[in-house]
């Protein structure tokens, strides 16, 4: 019961991460890829994003992570998003055209946009749960 209670703040972030991951993984489903490979692609992104999203929920209120403050969330996803994508590409990707470093740099850039959407939805979901 106590564990459940302490993990509750992780739920909104984990849900957003999972949905984003599954949605993206779903893209490969009708790409002519076999179902198994599409599912692996979805899982390979959904799991790391959900874990990172959940971790963010647990970090809120600690260190720099104040509700609504954007910069720490952006920094958080600048590390977490490229890492998640790297895991997905390694397990179920089609190869990195520009090499790992440029791949990571590009993902880090896109992560800022992801962070805006994440914090936007996270705050909305958290408000609703209150």
């Amino acid at each position: 019961m106590e564990i459940r209670h302490s993990l509750e703040p992780a739920l909104p972030g984990a849900a957003i991460g999972a949905v984003a991951g599954v949605a993206a993984g779903g893209l490969t489903l009708l790409a002519g890829q076999p179902l198994g490979r599409a599912a692996l692609s979805a899982l390979a992104l959904a799991v790391p994003l959900a874990l990172c999203g959940g971790a963010y929920g647990l970090l809120i209120g600690r260190w720099l992570f104040r509700p609504g403050a954007f910069a720490p969330v952006a920094l958080f996803w600048m590390v977490a998003f490229p890492t998640s994508r790297l895991i997905q590409e390694s397990l179920a990707g089609v190869g990195m055209r520009d090499g790992v470093l440029l791949f990571l740099a590009y993902q880090a850039m896109v992560s800022v946009g992801f962070a805006i959407g994440f914090v936007w939805l996270h705050e909305r979901l958290t408000v609703r749960r209150r």
Partner: peptide, 28 residues
């Protein structure tokens, strides 16, 4: 506000993920 918030949040997150999957450093 509730309705649009969720719709825009979904739009922003999905756009970012799709761009992450199909784009490259050179494009951006």
């Amino acid at each position: 506000e509730n309705l649009l918030s969720v719709l825009i949040g979904v739009l922003v997150i999905s756009t970012a993920v799709v761009a992450a999957m199909v784009g490259s450093w050179g494009d951006v």
